[in-house]
Amino acid sequence: MKVVIKQPNEDMEVKDITVNLKNLQGIVDGYIEGVYLGVKMAYKNIFAYGDDEAKLKDKEPNFWLHNKRDVFCGTAIFTKENGFGEEIDLTDDDIKLIKEFLKENKI
């Protein structure tokens, strides 16, 4: 499945991965949680997975959330769901939207 992976202090990468719990936990290096990214992204069913305990583990900040009222720490995996709870490939338009989101919310 086509996803975007964003590590702190690095450019985003488009990767094709197998989406399952073990792989997601391995990429974020911890227990995963889904993160709401705002209305613009939610409208397109795009969200991010991250380490549920990233702030407790003192992981590096990655990007701002919610008009700079919160920060996403650690590795982010951007993905999309089909409206029925199943992850699906990101489209080229989705990837452009994520790139804009990251530019607007750069730390």
Rank of each mutant, 00 (worst) to 15 (best):
K99M: 06
G26C: 07
F47Q: 09
K40F: 03
D94V: 10
G34K: 12
E60R: 04
Y49E: 14
F63M: 08
D94K: 00
F63C: 10
I77K: 06
L21Y: 02
N20F: 00
D93E: 15
K57E: 14
D11S: 11
F101D: 02
F101Q: 02
L37G: 03
G30C: 06
I27L: 05
K44Y: 07
N67P: 00
I95C: 02
F78W: 03
V35F: 00
V3Y: 01
D11Y: 01
Y31T: 15
N20R: 10
D93L: 09
Y43R: 05
F84G: 10
V71Y: 03
V3L: 08
E100K: 08
E87L: 13
K2W: 00
N20T: 06
L97S: 10
K57V: 13
F78D: 14
I27F: 01
Q7W: 02
P8C: 04
L102F: 03
E87F: 14
G30H: 01
D92T: 08
E86V: 14
E86Q: 15
N82C: 13
T75N: 11
K68C: 08
A76V: 13
I46Y: 04
K6Q: 07
N82Y: 12
W64P: 02
I17G: 05
Q25I: 06
T91D: 09
T75A: 13
P8Y: 02
G83K: 09
F63H: 09
N45Q: 12
L90Y: 03
V19M: 11
D29M: 05
I98S: 07
N82R: 10
K22H: 05
G30W: 00
A48K: 03
L65W: 05
E60A: 14
L65C: 08
I77C: 14
V39E: 09
K99T: 15
D51K: 05
L24Y: 00
N105T: 14
V4H: 02
D29V: 10
L37H: 02
E10Q: 10
L37S: 04
E13W: 01
L102E: 04
